[in-house]
């Protein structure tokens, strides 16, 4: 009996959290579009996007290089080394690019946003803003949401390009596969909408989800040192799981027809 009551309370808690999160999100998204807010947005794009660039470029290069290496050794057994470029590009554009970038983004930028907003809450900056008649949703939350939405697709694109060139360096310079076969195989297989477009759609969805979770976890955190720590962990864990689950659903929906 107590178990059932406990489960019910937990479920209601979760539903209530989702409700609060939706309200925060809706108010924040509605809150932005004004000319005067652009400096706030630029500052957030700097701290969310520009500062994530190094980790994105480094991991992009090594992931591209590793994929090229693995594909090359396996495909060389069938004499199909020319398919390295095609495999590399499709794997990156369709799946790994959006997913890995979103995971790195959750770890690098999402956690920072949560900790920042959580700290503002615990030092009562948010409530003093309210007291001064400044809406914290509008001033603090909205620029971060929008900045995330702008940054993640850009980061994903940069990640893909760096990874493809990283793979090209390994496959062509080091392993000595034929540059003509590498690039033309890739160009024959990659479609603008089917591969690049749908990959970008994925990254926009991930951006929405990750920034939403990060901002809300900060906004809803317990105003203690422990609470901020827990909220930051939650951001990374929940966003990672959500990104992977959503990726499966999006792949199923967009590339469908696997039966």
């Amino acid at each position: 009996m107590r178990l059932i009551r406990h489960l019910g309370a937990r479920t209601l808690d979760r539903v209530a959290t989702l409700g609060r999160a939706s309200v925060v999100w809706a108010q924040a998204v509605w809150g932005l579009p004004k000319i005067g807010d652009i400096p706030l947005l630029v500052r957030q794009i700097y701290s969310i996007g520009v500062l994530s660039l190094v980790i994105i470029v480094l991991s992009g290069f090594s992931i591209g290089a590793v994929i090229a290496l693995q594909f090359y050794t396996q495909l060389a057994r069938f004499g199909a080394e020319d398919a390295v470029g095609l495999g590399l590009a499709l794997v990156l554009l369709r799946e790994l690019g959006p997913v890995v970038t979103a995971l790195l983004f959750a770890g690098r930028a999402g956690s920072a946003v949560t900790a920042e907003i959580g700290l503002m809450k615990s030092t009562e900056q948010l409530s003093s803003m309210e007291m001064m008649g400044v809406d914290p949703l509008h001033r603090i939350v909205a620029p971060r949401l929008w900045a995330g939405l702008i940054c993640l697709p850009l980061l994903t694109t940069i990640f893909n390009v760096v990874a493809i060139y990283g793979g090209a360096v390994v496959a062509i310079q080091w392993l000595g596969s034929d540059p003509g076969g590498f690039w033309s195989g890739m160009q024959d297989a990659v479609e603008v909408w089917d591969d690049i477009g749908k990959g970008t759609v994925k990254s926009v969805v991930f951006a929405l989800v990750v920034t939403w979770i990060a901002v809300f976890q900060g906004y809803d955190s317990e105003p203690t040192a422990e609470g901020i720590g827990r909220a930051t962990t939650q951001t990374v864990v929940i966003s990672s799981v959500m990104v992977l689950a959503l990726d499966f659903l999006l792949t199923l929906g967009m590339y469908g027809d696997f039966k």
């Binding site: 694109t157 160009q187 479609e191 690049i196």
Partner: peptide, 16 residues
């Protein structure tokens, strides 16, 4: 850089 990367993807990778 992001926009440039998109152009590179479309032109160089998909070969339009």
């Amino acid at each position: 850089a992001g926009i440039l990367a998109m152009v590179v993807l479309v032109v160089k990778v998909s070969g339009v």
